[in-house]
Amino acid sequence: MKQNRVTAIVLAAGQGKRMETSVAKQFLTLDNKPVIYYSLKAFEESSVDEIILVTGREQIDYCMEHILKPYQINKVSRVIEGGKERYESVYHVLKDIKQTDYVLIHDGARPFIATNLIEMLIEKVKEFKACILGTPVKETIKQVNEDDYITATPDRNTLWAAQTPQVFSYEAIKKAYDLFYADEEMNKKAITDDAMVYEKYMKLPVKMVMGSYHNLKLTTPEDLIIAETLLHNI
């Protein structure tokens, strides 16, 4: 029986302006290790066949010498330069991949992704072809207009907060991105995750899979404080 090949794409090219630091958030330290180390380690210990790390041009050598080698992240097949926008980085990698069956796309600023969740997604995608992690929202959500007046209160029972990894059949997500890039009328900056591209251009459903409230994305300085606490209590 043919073994499916699984590739993890870890995105670490963002500048993270809301973190208000001179160092990109994925290279800040948690317990004396770079933030990006933790998600790379989770994929290293999973059954994925290879990891492709996407970062800024000026961080490529740093990642190779100060993260991959000392922490023995051996499944990283290459470190490549990302684009200005997240979607550009993803498409650049999808075009660069020579052969794989499934791809997991993960934000490097989510250091607490657990290996068991990665394994669950790998199994789920074989059945559903497109899956993402998420968690039901806890708060009441308000929709507002440009003047900050409330226009709607969506049913909280139908709302989930999307997380990563997001995992897809490689052929399907590559085709979706090809169509996305060919669509000259699309406001590409309105795309905030890969599931949006898949939903719009493949016209196929994406399966939501229960993630973890610990799978925090580091965005603001307050998130670092929470992350330090989580690191010592998970």
Rank of each mutant, 00 (worst) to 15 (best):
K2G: 03
N4G: 01
R5M: 13
T7E: 04
A8P: 05
V10M: 08
L11T: 08
A13D: 10
A13C: 09
A13K: 02
G14W: 01
Q15I: 14
G16P: 02
K17R: 11
S22N: 14
V23D: 04
A24M: 08
Q26N: 12
F27A: 06
F27W: 13
L28G: 03
D31A: 15
K33L: 14
P34M: 12
V35K: 00
I36S: 03
Y37C: 08
Y38D: 04
S46W: 06
I52T: 07
T55N: 00
T55V: 09
D61C: 07
C63G: 03
C63L: 09
P70G: 10
Q72V: 13
N74Q: 12
K75T: 10
R78F: 08
V79I: 15
G83P: 03
E88P: 06
Y91R: 01
H92S: 12
V93F: 10
L94H: 03
K95S: 12
K95E: 15
K95A: 11
D96H: 09
I97N: 03
I97P: 04
K98L: 09
D101E: 09
V103C: 08
I105T: 07
G108Q: 06
R110L: 08
A114F: 06
I118E: 01
E123D: 15
V125L: 06
V125H: 00
P136D: 08
P136R: 05
P136N: 10
T140F: 02
I141E: 00
N145Q: 08
I150G: 02
T158N: 13
A162R: 03
A162D: 06
T164D: 08
V167G: 01
K174M: 09
K175L: 15
L179A: 12
F180D: 09
Y181E: 15
A182K: 12
A182I: 10
T192P: 00
T192S: 08
D193N: 15
Y198H: 07
L204M: 14
L204W: 03
V206Q: 01
V209E: 14
M210Q: 15
N215A: 15
L216M: 13
L218Y: 01
T220V: 12
P221L: 10
E222R: 10
I225L: 12
I226W: 02
T229W: 11
N233R: 11
